[in-house]
Computed example of a mutant assay.
Amino acid sequence: MTSRIKELAEAIACKGISIRTTNHAEVSHDTAKLGRLWQKFYQNYAGQLPEGEDIYGVYHNYESDDLVGAFDVVASWKTASEKNDQSDSERTASISNVVEVTIPAGKYLVFSEEGHVPNTVMNAWESAWEYFNAPDCEHTRTFAVDFEHYIDGNLEYGQVDLYIGIK
């Protein structure tokens, strides 16, 4: 695992499907929603995206911190910079329940993992939690927006960068 600070110069507009959950709910198979969200995304949406399209898992609307509060997760793709991009409009015209979310410009601590998904994602989150729960942690989380960036849209094997918003 590697980590580095990255200043995101521009916001990233995304569209995708969303759920609301808690970390406590994700511990149990019976109450976990994230796996089903990504399965639905992979089965119903990923195939409609251009090959190599970057995929984003956006965490936002935090109720409090990572221990007790609920939050929204959007399995998404980056939308075109022009609002009326025809291909994106055509792609989402037949998709119901699509939401829009914006990843804001700002300062992030990035944890990178490479390997088989979802292990890479779980490892990145574990590294982040370990880092931020350490007594000598140098940074403070904003709990505004965090996101996973699946490089080249590979949801099976590849690099995942986990961006944690920091002050």
Rank of each mutant, 00 (worst) to 15 (best):
S18V: 09
E63M: 00
A32P: 03
N119R: 12
M1P: 08
T2Q: 15
L109R: 15
S81N: 12
N133V: 10
A75I: 02
N44L: 14
H24M: 10
E138S: 11
N97K: 15
Q39P: 02
I5Y: 02
F147D: 01
V121C: 12
S81L: 08
Y163M: 06
N84M: 13
Y163A: 00
V101P: 02
I164F: 07
N84D: 10
Y108F: 13
L162A: 01
G52K: 08
D54K: 10
T2P: 01
A93R: 15
A13R: 13
I55Q: 04
E126W: 01
W125N: 02
E63G: 12
E90F: 15
W77A: 10
E156G: 01
S28T: 07
D146R: 02
T92Q: 11
V58R: 03
N154K: 09
D146C: 11
D136A: 14
K78I: 05
S64N: 11
E113T: 10
V145L: 09
E7F: 04
A32E: 11
G106E: 02
N154R: 10
P135E: 07
G57H: 01
A124P: 06
D54M: 14
S3Y: 13
A80Q: 08
D152K: 07
E156M: 12
S94A: 07
F111S: 01
L37W: 01
K6M: 14
T120D: 10
K40R: 15
V145H: 02
K40I: 05
G106C: 06
N119D: 10
A25R: 06
W125A: 02
Q43S: 14
F147G: 00
N97E: 13
A13P: 09
T22A: 09
I151T: 11
L67T: 07
V117T: 03
C137M: 06
A144G: 03
I164C: 07
N23Y: 11
V27C: 10
S3E: 06
M1V: 05
F143Q: 03
N123A: 14
E156Q: 15
P104H: 03
H149C: 08
I151M: 10
T79F: 05
A13C: 11
C14F: 06
D85Q: 09
D65F: 08
V27F: 14
D65A: 13
M122Y: 05
Y42V: 04
